[in-house]
Design a protein around this nucleic acid. Sequence first.
DNA 1: TGGCCGTATACGGTTGTCGTAATGGGAGGC
DNA 2: GCCTCCCATTACGACAACCGTATACGGCCA
Lengths: 110, 110
Amino acid sequence: MENVEREILLSFWKVHILHHAKKKPVIGQWVIRELRRHGYEVSPGTLYPLLARMAGRGWLRCRVDPEGGLRARKEYSLTKKGREVLSFLRDQVEELHREVVLGEEEEPES
Amino acid sequence: MENVEREILLSFWKVHILHHAKKKPVIGQWVIRELRRHGYEVSPGTLYPLLARMAGRGWLRCRVDPEGGLRARKEYSLTKKGREVLSFLRDQVEELHREVVLGEEEEPES
DNA sequence: TGGCCGTATACGGTTGTCGTAATGGGAGGC
DNA sequence: GCCTCCCATTACGACAACCGTATACGGCCA
């Protein structure tokens, strides 16, 4: 696939990020490497604002070594609110999977 | 859930749209109604540019009654290229589902 | 001290999203 | 014929997200 449905894929990766942040703290560079390992390039200019936004919304908590100065690595872990969001998204993924992958229909409304 | 993870949800709906467009032609108003039926509001200012973009990328073909003038309803159906994109996205949905819903791990690379 | 590596930031341009308001055409009433 | 209502799309201006590339900081090691 080309480069253009990143518009869609990026959202999938966001869910992945939340998921991983639940298991263990996540770091910008790690995400970039992980995505590259799977064949996708995400530039810092995309990823870091994304993490910052999720933190700003209260989904992730950012921990940073206060002695580390600027450019110290930042560890993002899932907050309570983030867990709620993730759980909600999980349901949505399941629904999408059920319909698009499994091919099950929903009954039309009267 | 609030209103803010539409940033993620909207991408899911895009996949839904492609999926439906494969089964039968899709119309802007229908999508808006359908989403509302599921409890989500998408405004025309979001949806129509989205459909137009997908058509511009060659994922959807737009058919319109030539006698209908401006504002005639437009039917979007999936093209060959759109089917390829959808098939690719299906795999991605499956992977996301496997990891986030089913909780299966991928083996780390050496 | 100098160079390299890992990490995050800055930034300017492009694209995507948002709500609301406006437009066009068709059908029904009368 | 004309008025009104409904269905559907378009226009638009503001805002948010995304993009790549260039830059900066700090640690480590020779």
